[in-house]
């Protein structure tokens, strides 16, 4: 491992890039810890946002006004305001109020706030993608299912969602790639993700270019992995004669 790192540092220096800090234990462990935090953030927000999206889409297409209207209002508010502003609002305002109410027993860490805010924000986008999928299920299919005495819940879970997922998958993957990049806002409230680690290193020394290249490479790789998983799922879930 160390041998490869030294080789890389040597190779980069022949290009005029100074990656010497990677051989230093402190910045290297800071960056590695940051990368791990970003991976956790991605994993938790992907799960959180998909669950939120599913819930909101179910409310939107329930056909009951009392459920659909609040869901619509939530989506419009969440979708139409910037993530960074929402994060500041949640962490600097809501969290402060919560602290004043319950004192030091407040269980929500900055990390938890990032997960909550990004999950809700991206969940609103997922909901719209899933709604498009659900509404694209042909009416005759639904009639056929109803004639087999499916309840509303069974209809959604066994008929609409499996078909809707196939329609919505490209949009959902698109949203998830955006979500991976969005986790960088965590650095604004001092959650130690990889962007934050890089800022902390480059404000103390002169290696902005090297760290920027590293950051771009890392996020690029992460988004590419999400993209590949999406492509695999699309191929895997393809139904001959339906959609394609």
């Amino acid at each position: 491992m160390n041998h490869w790192l030294e080789f890389f540092v040597h190779w980069a220096s022949s290009l005029g890039l100074n990656y010497g800090f990677l051989l230093d234990a402190y910045p290297r462990s800071t960056l590695a810890q940051g990368a791990l935090t970003t991976l956790w953030l991605c994993l938790l927000t992907i799960i959180g946002s998909l669950l939120t999206g599913l819930g909101l889409a179910a409310l939107l297409t329930s056909g009951k006004r009392a459920l659909a209207v609040p869901a619509r209002v939530f989506i419009e508010v969440t979708r139409n305001t910037p993530t960074l502003v929402q994060l500041y609002c949640a962490f600097l305002v809501l969290n402060m109020l919560l602290n004043q109410a319950v004192g030091t027993a407040n269980p929500l860490t900055p990390f938890a706030w990032v997960v909550i805010v990004i999950s809700l924000h991206k969940g609103a986008f997922h909901a719209e993608a899933l709604r498009a999928g659900i509404e694209a299920v042909p009416a005759v299919t639904l009639e056929a299912a109803r004639s087999l005495a499916f309840s509303n819940r069974q209809l959604l879970w066994n008929v609409q969602l499996p078909l809707a997922l196939r329609f919505a998958l490209p949009s959902l993957i698109n949203n998830l790639i955006d979500l991976v990049k969005m986790t960088a806002v965590a650095s604004a409230i001092a959650v130690g993700d990889i962007t934050y680690s890089a800022i902390m290193i480059w404000t103390q020394s002169d290696n902005v270019l090297e760290l920027m290249i590293l950051l771009l490479g890392f996020y690029g790789l992460l988004s590419f992995i999400v993209n590949c998983v999406g492509r695999y799922l699309e191929a895997r879930l393809r139904m001959p004669g339906y959609g394609h």
Partner: peptide
């Protein structure tokens, strides 16, 4: 400014 707000939020 954010740092001071975070202090007041007991972070």
């Amino acid at each position: 400014s954010e740092s001071l707000l975070a202090l007041r939020g007991n972070n």
